[in-house]
Amino acid sequence: MADHVFSPEDVSRIVGHMNDAHSEDLVRYAEAYGDVTEVEGVRMTGIDVEGFDLEVEQKSATVPVRIDFDAPLDTVDEARAALVEMAMAAQDAAER
């Protein structure tokens, strides 16, 4: 595990922002990186230097999904960059 951790305040801010402003990206993360289908809704429940956690609503169940970053992150700025990059890649994949 990386030496760095995100503060509880950073985690709360990132999770809140993603849930409030990026719900479509969360759905794409679940589909593209979590291999989840029939997604009806998604909430981010946590993030750390290794990856992030989603709660994915499907017709029949709500399932936890863990998505790892390619490499552990050191800073909140790196987390922001990784989430943006993953969102753009997932959007490109969805449009193909």
Rank of each mutant, 00 (worst) to 15 (best):
M18S: 00
N19Q: 01
D20F: 06
H22M: 05
S23H: 09
D25T: 00
D25R: 02
D25Q: 06
L26H: 06
L26P: 01
V27H: 10
V27D: 12
V27F: 03
R28W: 07
R28M: 08
Y29K: 11
A32H: 14
A32P: 08
Y33Q: 07
Y33E: 02
Y33N: 07
G34K: 06
D35M: 14
V36T: 09
T37A: 15
E38L: 13
V39P: 06
G41I: 05
V42K: 12
V42M: 13
M44G: 06
M44L: 10
G46K: 09
G46M: 14
I47D: 04
D48I: 12
D48Y: 13
E50D: 11
G51K: 07
G51V: 10
G51Q: 06
G51N: 07
D53Y: 08
L54A: 13
V56G: 14
V56F: 10
V56W: 11
E57P: 03
E57K: 15
T62L: 09
V63S: 12
P64R: 13
I67R: 09
D68N: 14
D68I: 08
D68R: 02
D70L: 06
D70H: 02
A71K: 01
P72Y: 00
P72C: 04
P72N: 05
P72L: 01
L73V: 03
L73Q: 04
D74S: 08
T75P: 00
V76S: 02
E78D: 12
A79L: 02
A79M: 05
A79Q: 12
R80G: 00
R80A: 11
A82V: 08
A82T: 15
A82M: 15
L83P: 05
E85P: 00
